[in-house]
C-alpha cells in the first residue's frame, strides 16, 4: 500500500536486495531493525550523538538513525551482519574479541563499522583534526593511537573499552586495509 505517508523502496543490504514498504519517516536504522530484522545495529540515542547505529553506505560510515530509509535507496549498505565473510570473522572482529574491545557489546557494531570506514578514510589519505600536516600534497598520516582516538570519537562506549578498541583497531589495521 503506497500513499502519501508510505512508499515501497528497495534497499541493498549486505549484497541482498530487500523490497520494503516503509513509513516515509522511517529511519534507515529502524528499517534495518524492524523491517529487515537486522538488529545488530543499535539505537543508543536516535540523534546521531552516540554512533551505536553506524553502518556503511557505499563504504562510508553514516549514523543510520539520522538517515531516512527512503534516502538510502540505491546505496550499497553494509551492516555488522555483513562485515564478516562466509562465517569467518574479519580481522577487526577477531581482534575485538582477542583484545577485549568491548564489554556490554551494545556499541560494538557501531565501533566496528566505524573502524572499517575510518580505516578506508585514512588509507585514502584523509586527514583528521590531529593530523599535523594537512596540506593537499601531504602523505597520508601515520595511523597511531592519537589518530584512531580522534577518528573514532563519534562512537561512545560507556563501559570504557576505549583503550582496548584502539589497540584492536591498530592491530587489525594492516590486514583490514590489505584485505
Amino acid at each position: 500500500m503506497t500513499d502519501d505517508t508510505h512508499g515501497e523502496i528497495v534497499l541493498r543490504v549486505n549484497d541482498v536486495t530487500h523490497r520494503l514498504l516503509v513509513d516515509n519517516r522511517t529511519t534507515l536504522l529502524d528499517a534495518l531493525r524492524e523491517g529487515i530484522g537486522h538488529t545488530g545495529s543499535k539505537k543508543g540515542c536516535d540523534r546521531g550523538q552516540c554512533g551505536a547505529c553506524t553502518v556503511l553506505c557505499d563504504g562510508r560510515r553514516v549514523v543510520s538513525c539520522l538517515t531516512l530509509a527512503v534516502a538510502a535507496e540505491g546505496a550499497e549498505i553494509t551492516t555488522i551482519e555483513g562485515l564478516a565473510g562466509d562465517g569467518e570473522l574479519r580481522p577487526i572482529q577477531r581482534e575485538f574479541v582477542r583484545l577485549d574491545g568491548f564489554q556490554c557489546g551494545y556499541c560494538t557494531s557501531g565501533q566496528l563499522c566505524s573502524a572499517v570506514g575510518m580505516l578506508a578514510e585514512h588509507a585514502a589519505g584523509w586527514p583528521s583534526a590531529v593530523t599535523a600536516d594537512v596540506s593537499p600534497d601531504a602523505p597520508a598520516p601515520e595511523l597511531d593511537a592519537a589518530e584512531v582516538r580522534e577518528r573514532m570519537s563519534g562512537n561512545l562506549c560507556r563501559c570504557g573499552a576505549y583503550p582496548s578498541i584502539v589497540r584492536a583497531v591498530l592491530s587489525a589495521a594492516r590486514e583490514e586495509v590489505a584485505g
Binding site: 531493525r33 545488530g40 555488522i80 557489546g105
Partner: peptide, 18 residues
C-alpha cells in the same frame, strides 16, 4: 576472551529491544 564475544562482534547477540 568472552564466551559471547563472537555473538557481540557479529551482531547476533540479542538485547531487550531486538
Amino acid at each position: 576472551p568472552r564466551i559471547e564475544g563472537q555473538a557481540k562482534v557479529t551482531g547476533r547477540a540479542r538485547y531487550a529491544a531486538d
